[in-house]
Design a binder for these strands. Structure first.
Length: 309
DNA sequence: GTAGGGTTAG
């Protein structure tokens, strides 16, 4: 069996569950038998497959078995896989090993994952060191890297630093704006978040579902029903199949503002209801003292085989 | 056919 065949096998094998894990191990075995355990493309695909099966030890083993892992994208892919799965210690550990490798240097694709790990662990000291390094190397000019810096400082509750980095960015994209709007929201400054939302639109950006989630939540926190309604009308199209984050935020906003009818309307229109949507709707009835509806919803939540948290 | 950042409640 050649590399192309193995690669297409790996690609059809996506998904989780025990079945695909067994298949992953079989393909892994074939790769080793053919002596292809240092083939970068195959290893990257196999590592991703093991991650989708949540078998992190095997993914790690694949990486460690590669004789000369001198391909940066392999490291960056593993770093991203770790942070995507909230394995922040593992990500920082891998980054350390990358720094120790005499033949490799981290590039602009490595830093976003590492900064996310720093933020996730609240390691602001580590984040600051990386910040200094980014200024020296020039990688901080990269829009994704600098947005990650903003996010890292915000996660570490260093909001002044976060805003400073954002203000100094020479170019911004949608995600940078979302990061800074979310930063104000996290800092308890929902009014500032809405202010930045306006600035974002004035700069020529149309909000996406991430933006809408944060600004609707900001309206909720400010109990600003009128503003929330406006945003709902203007940006969330009628009969549109809602994004589950946006619809949960809307249910919460209407519920908090005491507008039960609208909360229920959005809730009923949401095809795939998240746990947050259920909790927000139940919370809305609860705040009105309507325990009958609370219990009714709680029962149908179980009926839908959704586990309450 | 390569690898990166941003989202909701309690």
């Amino acid at each position: 069996m050649d590399t192309t065949k193995l690669l297409s096998l790996l690609r059809t094998c996506s998904g989780s569950g025990s079945k695909s894990l067994i298949r992953a191990k079989l393909i892994h075995q074939k790769i080793v038998i053919q002596g292809l355990q240092s083939n970068i493309v195959l290893c990257k695909s196999l590592i991703n497959l093991y991650f989708s099966c949540q078998n992190y030890d095997s993914a790690n083993l694949v990486f460690r078995t590669i004789e000369n892992p001198l391909d940066l994208s392999l490291w960056n892919g593993l770093l991203a896989a770790y942070t995507k799965n909230y394995m922040f210690f593992e990500a920082l550990d891998l980054f350390d090993r990358l720094l120790q490798n005499p033949f490799l240097k981290p590039d602009s694709f490595a830093y976003p994952s590492v900064l996310k790990a720093c933020g996730g662990l609240g390691r602001v000291g580590c984040g600051k060191m990386i910040h200094t390094h980014l200024i020296k190397t020039g990688f901080g000019l990269d829009i994704v890297v600098s947005s990650s810096l903003v996010g890292m400082y915000a996660k570490c509750h260093k909001f002044e630093y976060a805003i400073k980095v954002f203000d100094e960015m020479s170019a911004r994209d949608m995600a940078s704006w979302n990061t800074v709007i979310s930063c104000y929201y996290q800092d308890g400054q929902a009014d500032k978040a809405l202010e930045l939302f306006k600035k974002m639109r004035d700069s020529g950006f149309e909000p996406n579902s991430v933006t809408l989630t944060i600004v609707i939540s900001s309206c909720s926190r400010l109990l600003d029903l009128e503003r929330g309604k406006e945003i709902h009308k203007e940006y969330v199209k009628d009969g549109f199949v809602f994004d589950s984050y946006v619809s949960s935020a809307l249910v919460d906003m209407y519920g908090k503002c005491g507008c039960l009818e609208m909360a229920r309307e959005v809730f009923d229109q949401t095809p795939v209801k998240s746990v947050v949507a259920w909790n927000s709707m139940i919370g809305a009835y609860s705040s009105k003292g309507d325990s009958k509806s609370c219990i009714e919803l709680f029962r149908s939540m179980h009926w839908k085989e959704l586990n309450p948290q």
